[in-house]
Write a protein that binds this DNA or RNA. Structure first.
Length: 496
RNA sequence: GCCCCCAUCGUCUAGGGGACCAGGACAUGACCCUUUCAAGGUCAAGACCGGAGUUCGAAUCUCCGUGGGGGCACCA
């Protein structure tokens, strides 16, 4: 760690409305990286102020996804922490109090307008080609009277009193100053009629109270950014460093991922949700590497990063403000890259469940050698069964049409099988050293190419057209099994 | 309609006035290696959205256009 920056307190604050997706995971990752790099804290806060969109499985899904990535929060609903609770639904009173404080300071006001009236106003404005906004009716109410009406139980919301004239300038770490006309700012709702706060208040309050130093969030917050800054200033608080991340676009770069795109990707074997990553054969090391590079880069060459590399090298000023299209083939590439970096034993451990899921019994004695044979040629864990299932099958299915071709008749194949058998039987140990020369000789004697002999052998032992190298396979299978499978192949070929 | 953001190969990006007839990666094609498939290696093709300025000099700065994206809820 080369940084001299003070410890950062960075929060990941998802709304539990669905599964954690790539975009959210990226934000969480950046949060984590900055926190760890500075020796600070990575905080999980659940923003569940919207009871309508709330899904009770979402919070767990988010935690599971973070755990899978290996980025556990230092503070959060499960672990607690000095600023608990970390679930906004448990902090309603705090928001309410601060909203009241804003009213006292004349920075907010009660609003008694009904939703019906509001939507009428909006429709009218839209019809007149005006930007929809609150018309300010209740802003003009006498304050004492409004306080009384609210106290007497009349349904109301609390709105922020946006400045009328002038401009507001907010500073984003990636984009610099963003200045807007205050006249374009709406009097947004802070507290709903249910008494619950909305994001615009709750997030600001929590970020301040929890001592958050850096806010990473999606660029969809840019339009309301000035208002958030205004809320901070109205309360007299110091602002955090704001970082608005670029959006992730769908692979063709045309628009952000929609539900339809998500389904489409999934059909093609590509994940949008973190929960699908594992099932589709991706390993967290690769996913993290891939995600980190969408919107961030280190230099003009380095692309391979482990989590701890990233903790070391991450920096805000290398973040890219422009939108990035998701590139799934690059995920595949990184997955292969990280798989190859795994220790064989580790890789073995990770592929075992895949064989089990396929109904096979991966024998532990040969699991590591099998893993070694497979590791170099697998990109996704899903491929492992197709490629190496034959190691654990009782029998191997032989496809005659794959062995017998225009260049190799059934008779030749049968003969070749028999002669390979002879060669192997004469060997107490079938190694590349001892067998390869003999097999090549056999090929030339029969007027065949070496590839044809090896192909036949491969089919006989694996039942597959492609497999790891023959001489990698043989010692793993063992002499006995090799002879057995060859004999069977020979029998079938003789009958054909 | 209004507001905001963004703009380098198909995609992710390096680049922050001369080091750039623009570098890397994925994908693509060819070749090498080779018992298959990979992996690995070599090579190829491929981009500064347009126009004005500023400057001796612009991918880099400014403005205008265009394109793309996002937002305009008692959702986050």
């Amino acid at each position: 760690m080369t940084t001299t920056n003070p410890p950062a307190r960075v929060r990941f604050a998802p709304s539990p409305t669905g599964f954690l997706h790539i975009g959210g995971a990226r934000t969480a990752l950046y949060d984590y990286l900055l926190a760890k790099q500075t020796g600070g804290a990575f905080i999980l806060r659940i923003e569940d102020t919207d009871q309508k969109r709330y899904q009770d499985t979402a919070e767990q899904d988010i935690k599971d996804a973070l755990a899978w990535m290996g980025i556990q929060p230092d503070e959060g609903p499960d672990r607690g922490g000095p600023y608990a609770p970390y679930r906004q639904s448990q902090r309603s009173q705090i928001y309410r109090d601060i909203a009241e404080e804003l009213i006292e300071k004349d920075q907010a006001y009660y609003c008694f307008c009904t939703t019906e009236r509001l939507s009428e106003v909006r429709d009218q404005q839209q019809k007149n080609n005006q930007t929809p906004h609150y018309d300010g009716t209740c802003r003009r109410l006498d304050k004492k009277e409004a306080v009384n009406r609210a106290a007497s139980g009349e349904p109301h919301v609390i709105r922020f009193k946006s400045p009328r004239g002038g401009t507001t300038t907010a500073v984003d770490a990636l984009r610099g100053e963003i200045t807007v006309e205050n006249s374009s700012l709406d009097d947004i709702i802070l507290i709903k009629s249910t008494g619950l706060a909305v994001y615009h208040l709750a997030a600001m309050v929590d970020d301040h109270l929890m001592g958050i130093t850096h806010v990473f969030r999606g660029s969809e917050w840019l339009p309301t950014f000035p208002i958030h800054v205004l809320v901070y200033r109205a309360l007299g608080w110091d602002e955090p460093i704001w970082v608005h991340l670029s959006v992730l676009l769908k692979p063709d770069g045309k628009g952000k991922m929609s539900k339809r795109d998500t389904e489409l990707a999934r059909e093609q074997g590509y994940p949008i949700f973190m929960k699908d990553m594992e099932d589709l054969g991706y390993i967290p090391e690769a996913v993290i590497n891939w995600i980190a590079l969408m919107g961030w880069s280190y230099d003009d060459k380095t692309e391979y990063f482990t989590l701890s590399d990233l903790v070391d090298k991450f920096s805000i000023d290398k973040l890219n403000p422009s939108p990035a299209a998701i590139n799934f083939s690059k995920l595949d590439h990184f997955n292969g890259l990280h798989i190859r970096e795994l220790a064989v034993e580790d890789f073995a451990k990770r592929i075992k469940p895949w064989f089990e899921k396929a109904g096979l019994l991966p024998r532990d004695e040969i699991l590591v050698p099998v893993a070694a044979a497979l590791q170099k040629r697998t990109k996704k864990l899903t491929e492992v069964v197709d490629m190496g299932g034959f190691f654990f099958h009782d029998e191997v299915g032989l496809a005659l049409d794959r062995i017998v071709s225009s260049k190799l008749s059934a008779g030749q194949a049968a003969e070749a099988a028999e002669r390979i058998l002879e060669i192997f039987r004469g060997l107490d140990e079938i190694t590349q050293d001892k067998a390869e020369t003999a097999l090549r000789e056999l090929a030339s004697q029969m007027g065949l190419k070496a590839g044809q002999i090896f192909g036949l052998l491969r089919e006989s032992l694996t039942g597959q057209k492609v497999s790891p190298p023959i001489f990698d396979i043989i010692p793993i299978l063992g002499r006995e099994l090799v002879l057995e499978r060859l004999e069977k192949a020979h029998k079938i070929l003789s009958k054909a």
